[in-house]
Write a protein that binds this DNA or RNA. Structure first.
Lengths: 212, 212
DNA sequence: ATCTGTGAACTCGTTCACAGCT
DNA sequence: AGCTGTGAACGAGTTCACAGAT
């Protein structure tokens, strides 16, 4: 079949977010023009991206927002849901929990891990916190597929990541500065915050600068 | 001059992070082979990227790690430093502060803002927290160029972002789910955590899948 | 012999432009 | 008239492959 780029996936996720907000405003139809404007790209780009989800818009009314959202979700989501764990319940871990709550019903954060005796074996933010020593056992028992790494100690990140993968995790969302080395069929999304800041800082000076 | 892509900038930031860690291990020289391996890309890619920083490696010894780090920094950083503010000192804001501390001396988080009377007008995490009502005044007085948005209320994000830009901010690192609309010469780096998780979740299922 | 720097080739993602539909 | 879907053209970004350096 036709190959789908990472960029297209990212944009579909964005379109869905925009559509949800339009739906909550009571907007029922949208043209590629307007969706492109909201997503800050071109109408042709939007239409090209939407080819992969298999919902045909109408020239008369564009796309129905609800149907389009469902079509994108049908493409992006796993029918019976995906199980996620957070590793490390410091400030960042708990912040991620808060941000991810109640926004996508098919992606469920069902476990968290920490070393702190104050946190372990309690419900925290609506999700049970296990002792990290139980990681192997719990990850495989709960069939965790995605892990969010928010541990503060970089040295431990690699070891934990290897354990996660050994117990069935297929994708990592890595907020750690560690440059993880894993089997190449494991997907890693790196979100080093300092690197993000450095990038923003660079473009604060060099955005829209044409010469070098 | 030759145009530099966003991807190249991202990779240079990564190379620099890797080089810092190599230097701290006492490694003084590196070939494009090895740097490519550590950054998980190709030697040709590394050499192509390094063309923009203007440091010529030697066929005999490759690149000197320290000189290369300095060359990359010379390209990426602003000589006299950049001033950054964090807007919103919730869990996420304080986590970002922690992660960004002491890693790049040219990028300084010199102010933070919040509404909580418990936080306002105190030093928090080594950085003064102002009342958000003083945003316009302080941002322009301190010549803030980059802002990190970690406010919890999405509706306020747009208004705050406009104020920041009106007072001289040139780039935003946006951890808010808000899809900000600003003057197109302002650089926005979006880091919606739910979108990141959705992306990781998608590739947990579809990474390395060749057909559709 | 083995590296780097880089023009040229190639690949992949984006945009154009138009047929088809309403 | 004005939209969508898509083959074809285009262009940006990556890789190849080799000259030049040590």
């Amino acid at each position: 079949m036709t190959k789908i780029s990472v960029n297209t996936v990212e944009r579909l996720i964005l379109y869905r977010k925009i559509l949800k907000s339009l739906i909550s405003e009571g907007i029922t139809n949208i043209y590629s023009h307007r969706l492109a404007h909201l997503a800050e790209n071109s109408p042709a780009q939007v239409r090209r991206d939407l080819m992969v989800v298999g919902y045909i818009g109408s020239p008369a009314h564009g796309y129905n927002t609800k149907v389009l959202e469902d079509s994108i979700s049908g493409f992006l989501d796993v029918q019976d849901g995906q199980r996620v764990a957070i590793i490390g319940l410091g400030k960042l871990g708990r912040a991620v929990q808060d941000y991810c709550k109640q926004r996508n019903s098919r992606i469920n954060i069902i476990a968290s891990f920490d070393v702190d005796p104050q946190k372990v074996n309690r419900m925290i933010n609506g999700c049970f916190c296990y002792n990290i020593s139980e990681l192997d056992k719990i990850v495989s028992e709960l069939k965790i597929e995605v892990a969010i790494m928010t541990v503060p100690v970089v040295e431990e990140a690699q070891i934990i990541a290897e354990k996660l993968v050994a117990n069935g995790v297929k994708a990592l969302l890595n907020y750690t500065p560690a440059q993880l080395k894993l089997n190449p069929n494991i997907y890693i999304e790196n979100r080093d915050m300092m690197m993000a800041l450095e990038k923003a800082a660079f473009f604060a000076k060099n955005f829209n600068v044409k010469n070098l």
